[in-house]
């Protein structure tokens, strides 16, 4: 099991690029151990919000404060990118890399790597070069590499984009397993079906602004804003 995840508070958070706001200003509280889906059309600011929460995006204004010191918060987090970044190493070495950064001993690393390779279904590919894996395998490896450190908070940026149904199902099973183990998951998607399957709570963004936040069931049954309603009905929201 993973320790309880810290909560995070965004106050007047604003991100600008070339003087143009791409996110915010928004105020947002995320706490508890749920599965938060960040929903919205392309360009809504989903990835930027995730990067802001992860602390890798420069703020133009406002604040992001975790319930623990920033350095500690960063150590508790992991991030999976939409296009998985593979180190030019074997599957085994990719899985071992985050643990090596933490200075774990070789025996412990070997045990965890074998265990996670089995969990992500790559136990027979341990010595294959990671960049040669298929798209689904790469995303599973990226997820395994993120989860192997037992993060308390896991950020995922559209992890199932461009994956087929089978790979999506496998990824979702791994995510549910991680959530059950206590990892707080915050994930972006514009796949409504996936949001319905996974979300316990939901953040809806449009044009970089927070339009709705709350329980997923309430959002899907009775959205508060016309834009969210239109989005749920499959209209093109611009």
């Amino acid at each position: 099991m993973v320790d309880a995840a810290p909560s995070v508070h965004l106050a007047g958070t604003l991100v600008k690029r070339r003087g143009k706001p791409i996110l915010g200003p928004i105020d947002l509280d995320l706490s508890g151990s749920g599965f938060t889906i960040v929903l919205g059309p392309n360009g809504a600011g989903k990835t930027t919000l995730l990067k802001v929460l992860h602390g890798v995006e420069r703020l133009s204004d406002g604040d992001v404060s975790w319930s623990v010191p920033d350095a500690q918060a960063r150590e508790m987090q992991a991030y999976v990118f939409q296009s998985p970044i593979m180190l030019r190493r074997s599957v085994r070495q990719n899985l071992a890399y985050p643990l090596q950064l933490l200075g774990e001993d070789k025996a412990s690393i070997a045990t965890k790597v074998t265990d996670w390779a089995r969990r992500i279904g790559l136990e027979d590919a341990l010595d294959r070069p990671a960049p040669r894996l298929s798209g689904g395998e790469r995303q599973k490896l990226a997820l395994g590499r993120a989860l192997i450190r037992n993060p308390q908070v896991l950020f995922l940026d559209e992890p199932c984009a461009n994956l087929d149904g089978r790979s999506t199902r496998e990824i979702e099973a791994l995510l549910k397993g991680a959530q059950t183990a206590g990892t707080r998951i915050i994930m972006t998607t514009h796949d409504l079906g996936q949001a319905r399957r996974l979300a316990s709570d939901l953040v809806f963004l449009l044009h970089g602004r927070l339009h709705e936040q709350g329980q997923a069931s309430a959002f899907f049954s009775s959205p508060c804003t016309p834009e969210a309603k239109a989005f749920l009905e499959g209209d093109i929201v611009e």
Partner: peptide, 22 residues
Amino acid sequence: YHDLLISLNTTKTQRILTLIWD
């Protein structure tokens, strides 16, 4: 590697060593 190494909170030395090795 930029996004991954930043995300993993690597030190500058760890980044240089990773790049040299890979």
